[in-house]
Protein backbone atom coordinates (compact mmCIF):
# COMPACT_ATOMS: atom_id res chain seq x y z
CA UNK A 1 0.00 0.00 0.00
CA UNK A 2 1.22 3.48 -0.70
CA UNK A 3 0.58 6.95 0.54
CA UNK A 4 0.01 8.25 -2.95
CA UNK A 5 -3.21 9.98 -3.83
CA UNK A 6 -5.18 8.37 -6.63
CA UNK A 7 -6.09 10.24 -9.79
CA UNK A 8 -9.55 11.07 -8.53
CA UNK A 9 -7.94 12.95 -5.69
CA UNK A 10 -9.35 10.63 -3.04
CA UNK A 11 -6.92 8.71 -0.88
CA UNK A 12 -6.40 5.16 -2.03
CA UNK A 13 -8.70 2.83 -0.15
CA UNK A 14 -6.78 0.94 2.46
CA UNK A 15 -7.75 -2.72 2.38
CA UNK A 16 -5.40 -3.55 5.20
CA UNK A 17 -7.59 -1.63 7.67
CA UNK A 18 -9.50 -4.68 8.79
CA UNK A 19 -9.01 -3.95 12.43
CA UNK A 20 -11.11 -1.08 13.61
CA UNK A 21 -9.47 1.85 15.31
CA UNK A 22 -10.53 3.49 18.56
CA UNK A 23 -12.17 6.30 16.59
CA UNK A 24 -14.52 3.82 14.96
CA UNK A 25 -15.72 2.60 18.33
CA UNK A 26 -15.98 6.15 19.64
CA UNK A 27 -18.21 6.94 16.67
CA UNK A 28 -20.30 3.84 17.35
CA UNK A 29 -20.76 4.86 20.98
CA UNK A 30 -21.58 8.42 20.01
CA UNK A 31 -24.12 7.55 17.34
CA UNK A 32 -26.01 5.24 19.69
CA UNK A 33 -26.48 8.14 22.12
CA UNK A 34 -29.74 9.69 20.97
CA UNK A 35 -29.55 12.78 23.13
CA UNK A 36 -26.05 13.57 21.89
CA UNK A 37 -26.94 13.03 18.25
CA UNK A 38 -30.02 15.24 18.46
CA UNK A 39 -27.97 17.84 20.31
CA UNK A 40 -25.45 17.72 17.51
CA UNK A 41 -28.13 18.06 14.83
CA UNK A 42 -29.71 21.04 16.59
CA UNK A 43 -26.29 22.61 16.95
CA UNK A 44 -25.59 22.17 13.23
CA UNK A 45 -28.93 23.77 12.36
CA UNK A 46 -28.22 26.68 14.71
CA UNK A 47 -24.75 27.19 13.27
CA UNK A 48 -26.21 27.12 9.74
CA UNK A 49 -28.82 29.69 10.77
CA UNK A 50 -26.18 31.92 12.26
CA UNK A 51 -23.89 31.65 9.24
CA UNK A 52 -26.64 32.24 6.68
CA UNK A 53 -28.50 34.79 8.79
CA UNK A 54 -28.70 37.45 6.05
CA UNK A 55 -30.30 34.94 3.68
CA UNK A 56 -33.15 33.87 5.93
CA UNK A 57 -34.11 37.20 7.46
CA UNK A 58 -36.01 40.11 5.94
CA UNK A 59 -34.16 43.06 7.38
CA UNK A 60 -30.97 44.08 9.07
CA UNK A 61 -30.93 43.21 12.75
CA UNK A 62 -31.04 46.87 13.78
CA UNK A 63 -33.50 48.09 11.11
CA UNK A 64 -36.50 49.69 12.77
CA UNK A 65 -38.66 49.12 9.70
CA UNK A 66 -41.86 48.25 11.48
CA UNK A 67 -42.20 50.98 14.06
CA UNK A 68 -45.87 51.33 13.28
CA UNK A 69 -46.43 47.72 14.22
CA UNK A 70 -44.19 47.77 17.30
CA UNK A 71 -44.89 44.98 19.77
CA UNK A 72 -47.09 43.13 17.25
CA UNK A 73 -47.69 39.49 18.12
CA UNK A 74 -46.33 36.65 15.99
CA UNK A 75 -48.10 36.34 12.67
CA UNK A 76 -47.59 34.64 9.35
CA UNK A 77 -45.53 37.60 8.17
CA UNK A 78 -43.56 38.12 11.37
CA UNK A 79 -42.97 34.65 12.77
CA UNK A 80 -41.79 35.85 16.14
CA UNK A 81 -43.61 39.20 16.09
CA UNK A 82 -42.13 42.68 16.30
CA UNK A 83 -40.16 44.03 19.23
CA UNK A 84 -40.71 47.25 21.18
CA UNK A 85 -38.47 49.22 18.84
CA UNK A 86 -40.17 48.08 15.63
CA UNK A 87 -37.67 45.41 14.63
CA UNK A 88 -38.55 41.99 13.24
CA UNK A 89 -38.07 39.73 16.23
CA UNK A 90 -37.22 36.61 14.20
CA UNK A 91 -34.34 38.54 12.64
CA UNK A 92 -33.20 39.59 16.08
CA UNK A 93 -33.30 36.01 17.37
CA UNK A 94 -31.37 34.68 14.37
CA UNK A 95 -28.70 37.34 14.72
CA UNK A 96 -28.68 36.63 18.44
CA UNK A 97 -27.60 33.10 17.56
CA UNK A 98 -24.72 34.66 15.66
CA UNK A 99 -23.55 36.60 18.69
CA UNK A 100 -24.09 33.74 21.11
CA UNK A 101 -22.43 31.07 18.98
CA UNK A 102 -19.52 33.21 17.84
CA UNK A 103 -18.76 34.20 21.42
CA UNK A 104 -19.09 30.56 22.40
CA UNK A 105 -16.76 29.30 19.70
CA UNK A 106 -14.17 32.05 19.91
CA UNK A 107 -14.03 31.89 23.68
CA UNK A 108 -13.74 28.10 23.56
CA UNK A 109 -10.93 28.38 21.02
CA UNK A 110 -9.12 30.86 23.27
CA UNK A 111 -9.67 28.57 26.27
CA UNK A 112 -8.10 25.72 24.36
CA UNK A 113 -5.20 27.90 23.25
CA UNK A 114 -4.47 28.89 26.85
CA UNK A 115 -5.32 25.53 28.35
CA UNK A 116 -3.24 23.25 26.11
CA UNK A 117 0.22 24.74 26.70
CA UNK A 118 -0.37 25.28 30.41
CA UNK A 119 -1.88 21.84 30.89
CA UNK A 120 0.90 20.21 28.90
CA UNK A 121 3.55 22.08 30.87
CA UNK A 122 2.01 21.23 34.22
CA UNK A 123 1.59 17.61 33.25
CA UNK A 124 4.96 17.12 31.58
CA UNK A 125 7.34 19.02 33.79
CA UNK A 126 5.51 18.44 37.07
CA UNK A 127 7.28 19.84 40.10
CA UNK A 128 7.40 23.59 40.37
CA UNK A 129 5.67 24.36 37.07
CA UNK A 130 2.82 22.09 38.07
CA UNK A 131 2.63 23.65 41.51
CA UNK A 132 2.40 27.19 40.16
CA UNK A 133 -0.20 26.33 37.54
CA UNK A 134 -2.29 24.39 40.04
CA UNK A 135 -2.24 27.32 42.48
CA UNK A 136 -3.46 29.62 39.71
CA UNK A 137 -6.23 27.17 38.92
CA UNK A 138 -7.12 26.98 42.59
CA UNK A 139 -7.45 30.73 42.70
CA UNK A 140 -9.78 30.63 39.73
CA UNK A 141 -11.89 27.91 41.27
CA UNK A 142 -12.45 29.73 44.56
CA UNK A 143 -14.01 32.62 42.71
CA UNK A 144 -17.07 31.44 40.81
CA UNK A 145 -16.79 32.45 37.15
CA UNK A 146 -20.13 34.17 36.98
CA UNK A 147 -19.41 36.49 39.92
CA UNK A 148 -15.96 37.37 38.70
CA UNK A 149 -17.29 37.88 35.22
CA UNK A 150 -19.95 40.22 36.55
CA UNK A 151 -17.31 42.19 38.37
CA UNK A 152 -15.02 42.37 35.37
CA UNK A 153 -17.97 43.10 33.12
CA UNK A 154 -19.08 45.90 35.40
CA UNK A 155 -15.63 47.42 35.43
CA UNK A 156 -15.08 47.18 31.70
CA UNK A 157 -18.70 47.85 30.75
CA UNK A 158 -18.89 44.76 28.56
CA UNK A 159 -18.34 44.54 24.85
CA UNK A 160 -17.81 41.58 22.56
CA UNK A 161 -14.05 41.25 23.01
CA UNK A 162 -14.24 41.69 26.76
CA UNK A 163 -16.79 38.94 27.11
CA UNK A 164 -14.72 36.57 25.00
CA UNK A 165 -11.74 37.42 27.17
CA UNK A 166 -13.63 36.84 30.40
CA UNK A 167 -15.09 33.57 29.16
CA UNK A 168 -11.67 32.36 28.02
CA UNK A 169 -10.17 33.43 31.32
CA UNK A 170 -12.47 31.00 33.10
CA UNK A 171 -12.86 28.43 30.36
CA UNK A 172 -9.19 27.45 30.10
CA UNK A 173 -9.16 25.92 33.56
CA UNK A 174 -11.17 22.89 32.52
CA UNK A 175 -9.18 22.36 29.32
CA UNK A 176 -5.97 22.73 31.28
CA UNK A 177 -7.00 20.14 33.85
CA UNK A 178 -8.10 17.68 31.18
CA UNK A 179 -4.89 18.07 29.17
CA UNK A 180 -2.77 17.92 32.31
CA UNK A 181 -4.34 14.66 33.39
CA UNK A 182 -3.86 13.12 29.97
CA UNK A 183 -0.27 14.32 29.60
CA UNK A 184 0.53 13.11 33.09
CA UNK A 185 -0.79 9.68 32.21
CA UNK A 186 1.19 9.57 28.97
CA UNK A 187 4.50 11.08 30.02
CA UNK A 188 5.47 7.89 31.84
CA UNK A 189 4.71 5.83 28.73
CA UNK A 190 7.67 4.21 27.15
CA UNK A 191 7.25 5.84 23.78
CA UNK A 192 7.98 9.13 25.53
CA UNK A 193 11.04 7.54 27.11
CA UNK A 194 12.03 6.30 23.68
CA UNK A 195 11.77 9.81 22.24
CA UNK A 196 13.85 11.12 25.15
CA UNK A 197 16.41 8.44 24.46
CA UNK A 198 16.56 9.76 20.91
CA UNK A 199 17.47 13.17 22.22
CA UNK A 200 14.14 14.83 21.53
CA UNK A 201 13.50 18.11 23.32
CA UNK A 202 10.59 18.41 25.77
CA UNK A 203 8.83 20.72 23.33
CA UNK A 204 9.16 18.20 20.54
CA UNK A 205 7.73 15.47 22.77
CA UNK A 206 4.86 17.66 23.92
CA UNK A 207 4.06 18.80 20.38
CA UNK A 208 4.50 15.56 18.54
CA UNK A 209 3.45 12.94 21.08
CA UNK A 210 1.61 14.31 24.06
CA UNK A 211 -0.72 16.83 22.44
CA UNK A 212 -1.82 14.48 19.61
CA UNK A 213 -2.57 11.89 22.27
CA UNK A 214 -4.68 14.45 24.13
CA UNK A 215 -6.99 15.11 21.20
CA UNK A 216 -9.96 13.54 22.93
CA UNK A 217 -9.82 15.65 26.08
CA UNK A 218 -9.05 18.73 23.99
CA UNK A 219 -12.13 18.21 21.82
CA UNK A 220 -14.27 17.57 24.88
CA UNK A 221 -12.85 20.59 26.65
CA UNK A 222 -13.47 22.74 23.59
CA UNK A 223 -17.09 21.68 23.14
CA UNK A 224 -17.91 21.95 26.83
CA UNK A 225 -16.36 25.43 27.00
CA UNK A 226 -18.83 26.67 24.40
CA UNK A 227 -22.01 26.54 26.51
CA UNK A 228 -20.11 28.00 29.45
CA UNK A 229 -19.14 31.03 27.40
CA UNK A 230 -22.63 31.38 25.97
CA UNK A 231 -24.07 31.27 29.46
CA UNK A 232 -21.64 33.93 30.63
CA UNK A 233 -22.50 36.17 27.70
CA UNK A 234 -26.23 35.80 28.22
CA UNK A 235 -25.93 36.39 31.95
CA UNK A 236 -23.83 39.51 31.53
CA UNK A 237 -26.03 40.85 28.75
CA UNK A 238 -29.04 40.15 30.92
CA UNK A 239 -27.54 42.36 33.59
CA UNK A 240 -26.82 45.04 31.02
CA UNK A 241 -23.04 44.68 31.20
CA UNK A 242 -22.57 42.39 28.24
CA UNK A 243 -22.83 43.03 24.54
CA UNK A 244 -24.06 46.60 24.12
CA UNK A 245 -27.23 47.28 22.09
CA UNK A 246 -28.17 47.39 19.28
CA UNK A 247 -26.16 44.19 18.76
CA UNK A 248 -28.77 41.54 19.42
CA UNK A 249 -28.06 39.24 22.34
CA UNK A 250 -30.51 36.80 23.82
CA UNK A 251 -29.63 37.72 27.37
CA UNK A 252 -30.30 41.37 26.63
CA UNK A 253 -33.60 40.46 24.92
CA UNK A 254 -34.71 38.44 27.93
CA UNK A 255 -34.05 41.45 30.10
CA UNK A 256 -36.20 43.61 27.83
CA UNK A 257 -38.80 40.86 27.56
CA UNK A 258 -39.12 40.82 31.33
CA UNK A 259 -40.62 44.30 31.25
CA UNK A 260 -43.20 43.31 28.66
CA UNK A 261 -43.93 39.74 29.58
CA UNK A 262 -47.41 40.18 31.00
CA UNK A 263 -48.72 41.78 27.84
CA UNK A 264 -46.35 40.92 25.03
CA UNK A 265 -45.28 37.42 25.95
CA UNK A 266 -43.43 36.81 22.69
CA UNK A 267 -40.65 39.20 23.69
CA UNK A 268 -39.84 36.96 26.65
CA UNK A 269 -40.64 33.51 25.30
CA UNK A 270 -38.53 33.41 22.14
CA UNK A 271 -35.16 34.53 23.48
CA UNK A 272 -35.64 32.35 26.57
CA UNK A 273 -36.41 29.32 24.44
CA UNK A 274 -33.60 30.09 21.98
CA UNK A 275 -31.02 30.36 24.74
CA UNK A 276 -32.25 27.28 26.56
CA UNK A 277 -32.29 25.17 23.40
CA UNK A 278 -28.84 26.29 22.26
CA UNK A 279 -27.11 25.78 25.58
CA UNK A 280 -28.86 22.46 26.09
CA UNK A 281 -28.03 21.15 22.62
CA UNK A 282 -24.37 22.11 22.94
CA UNK A 283 -24.07 20.50 26.34
CA UNK A 284 -25.77 17.28 25.25
CA UNK A 285 -23.48 17.14 22.24
CA UNK A 286 -20.40 17.75 24.41
CA UNK A 287 -21.46 15.21 27.04
CA UNK A 288 -22.02 12.64 24.31
CA UNK A 289 -18.58 13.34 22.86
CA UNK A 290 -17.00 12.97 26.26
CA UNK A 291 -18.70 9.65 26.90
CA UNK A 292 -17.73 8.43 23.44
CA UNK A 293 -14.10 9.50 23.72
CA UNK A 294 -13.70 8.71 27.41
CA UNK A 295 -10.29 7.07 27.68
CA UNK A 296 -11.44 4.85 30.53
CA UNK A 297 -13.88 3.16 28.16
CA UNK A 298 -11.30 2.71 25.46
CA UNK A 299 -10.57 -0.77 26.68
CA UNK A 300 -6.87 -0.41 27.18
Amino acid sequence: MSVEISETGAPVAAPVYKQRGPLYFAWRRFSSNKAAVSGGIVLVILVAMAVFAPLITKTRYDAQDFLGQALAFPSREFWFGIDDLGRDFFTRIVYGARVSLSIGFIAAACSVLIGIPLGAMAGYFGGRADWIIMRIIELFSVVPPLLAAMLLGAITRGGFATIVLIAALFGWVQVCLLVRAQVKAFREKEFVRAAQALGATPWYIIRRHLIPNSVSPIIVGFVLAIPLAMMLEASLSFLGIGVPPPTPSWGQMINTGMNFMFFYWHLAVFPTAALAITVLATTLFGDGLRDALDPTLKGR
Partner: peptide
Protein backbone atom coordinates in the same frame (compact mmCIF):
# COMPACT_ATOMS: atom_id res chain seq x y z
CA UNK B 1 11.45 -1.53 26.30
CA UNK B 2 9.51 -4.35 27.84
CA UNK B 3 5.98 -3.10 27.17
CA UNK B 4 5.75 -2.86 23.42
CA UNK B 5 2.24 -1.44 23.64
CA UNK B 6 3.16 1.70 25.50
CA UNK B 7 6.49 1.94 23.67
CA UNK B 8 4.77 2.99 20.44
CA UNK B 9 2.79 6.20 20.11
CA UNK B 10 -0.79 5.06 19.35
CA UNK B 11 -1.44 8.13 17.22
Amino acid sequence: FQDSYSALDPM
